[in-house]
Design a protein around this nucleic acid. Structure first.
Length: 411
DNA sequence: TTACGAGTGTACACCTTAGC
DNA sequence: GCTAAGGTGTACACTCGTAA
């Protein structure tokens, strides 16, 4: 065999091997692609099934557009709606955390107007419902206490109504204001899209290999949203409350745990403490009356020390210094107060006085908390508050007010 | 592209008071 | 008297807009 022949045979053999290798590689690649395509198909099928199930649920569900004061919300009943209006209202109160008495109105398609809901059978999917707060009145909430209500050393209305925080006398606050007590389980809010994405990836990684998330840029957003949510319950959360928030945070987002911390979230507790303080400063700059009252500028001469006479809600007070009702100003409410003085001299206008007293509640709180006026002066400015008819009206709701009435009248 | 300043957020120290 | 907590002021880091 010639050298040329030998070389030819060698090249043919090598080519055959190379081609076989290439085909082998191609087969493996194609097989991998097919596997990946099948996996993607299965995923799409799963998502499609899930979507169809949800769609079927939605078709059975009853959805309502709900108008609550100036807010418009949505509620969905996955199963049948309650058969009685009372139960239906209960569900609404629970769903929207409404603590006051309400009734419901539904929009009638024929008249294009709202009618009082008397039967839930009148309702159909996508109806509009309006939450109507019961006529404004004074709601009494009582908290057991050991303090003697006839405390004779009370010298100002401020002192007197500080006792009120024990026997709370709170008119129904506007729905836009703080009216929920601190929850047993703190609801961690939804953060910005960017933060939620980072947390989602972080949690997945944490579940896979225990890696903790360290992205400083999302911390601000987390703290801001938590502070906002905490503020919706109280302006001055205490240490156990901050700890509960931090705990809830790392339970929902385990990737945010802190490795060096004894409970996994002590750093978050501290950050929340700072954040809440800074958040209060920010709100002060925007004129929040509940916070401005504690700034040095707004303290009496001689009391201008940071920690002196810090005014904050105590015990069961829900709304400490509520802002004026929407559309009302200091001057408009001052006019109402003057009208009230005139009204209180006329008989048979209890309901009107009651309404006007509710409207001017924020004014009285400002006078009581901010100015610590003397009782005599307060009585002069707000005679209706001391009117026996008004007191008796309230008295029907709670006997605790009797003590105050007797006390007021003994002055 | 870089430097700069304003604005903002976090963290901390300090002082003071309230509550126990 | 001690501890917890709030307000104030400030340092530091960072972001963002603007001018060179």
């Amino acid at each position: 065999m010639s050298t040329l022949q030998t070389l030819k045979t060698f090249i043919n053999q090598r080519l055959t091997v190379a081609v076989e290798e290439i085909f082998g590689l191609l087969e493996t690649t194609i097989s991998n692609y097919e596997e990946e395509i099948n996996r993607q198909r299965r995923l799409i099928e799963d998502e499609r099934s899930e979507f169809l199930i949800k769609k079927a649920d939605m078709q059975q569900a009853m959805r309502f557009r709900v108008i609550i004061d100036h807010d418009i919300k949505k509620i969905t009943f996955q199963n049948d709606i309650p058969s009685s209006v009372e139960d239906f209202i209960k569900v609404f109160k629970q769903a929207f955390s409404i603590t006051t008495d309400i009734s419901l109105q539904y929009k009638d398609a024929d008249f294009d107007d709202f009618f009082t809901l008397t039967s839930t059978s009148d309702l159909k999917d996508k109806d509009t419902l309006k939450v109507v707060h019961m006529p404004p009145g004074i709601i009494m909430t009582t908290v057991p206490h050991e303090r003697n209500p006839d405390n004779s050393d009370v010298s100002s209305v401020d002192d007197l109504l500080s006792a009120d925080s024990q026997d709370n006398l709170i008119p129904s606050p506007p729905a836009t204001e703080r009216q929920h007590l601190w929850p047993a389980l703190f609801p961690i809010p939804i953060f910005s899209y960017n933060t939620e994405m980072a947390l989602r990836q972080g949690n997945e990684k944490f579940l896979k290999d225990g890696t903790l998330l360290t992205i400083p840029s999302i911390k601000s957003d987390i703290l801001e949203r938590l502070a906002e949510t905490m503020f919706s319950y109280t302006a001055y959360p205490n240490d156990p409350q901050r700890a509960a928030v931090a705990q809830a945070l790392i339970e929902k987002h385990p990737c945010l745990r802190e490795p060096g911390s004894f409970n996994g979230c002590y750093g978050w507790q501290q950050s929340l403490k700072y954040k809440c303080g800074n958040y209060r400063s920010k709100l002060k700059a925007h004129g929040n009356p509940e916070l401005i009252i504690n700034t040095l500028k707004h303290k009496q001469e001689g009391d201008r020390k940071p920690a002196k006479n810090v005014k904050k809600p105590r015990k069961s007070e829900v709304n400490y210094l509520p802002p004026h009702p929407v559309g009302e100003t200091d001057s408009s409410l001052e006019n109402v107060r003057l009208e009230l003085i005139a009204m209180s001299k006329i008989q048979d206008n209890g309901q009107m006085i009651n309404d006007m007293m509710s409207r001017t509640y924020s004014c009285r709180r400002r006078e009581v908390v901010g100015q610590s006026v003397q009782i005599a002066e307060f009585k002069e400015r707000w005679p209706a508050l001391f009117d026996p008819l008004q007191v008796n009206k309230v008295n029907e709701q709670s006997s605790c007010h009797t003590r105050k009435y007797l006390y007021y009248n003994s002055l």
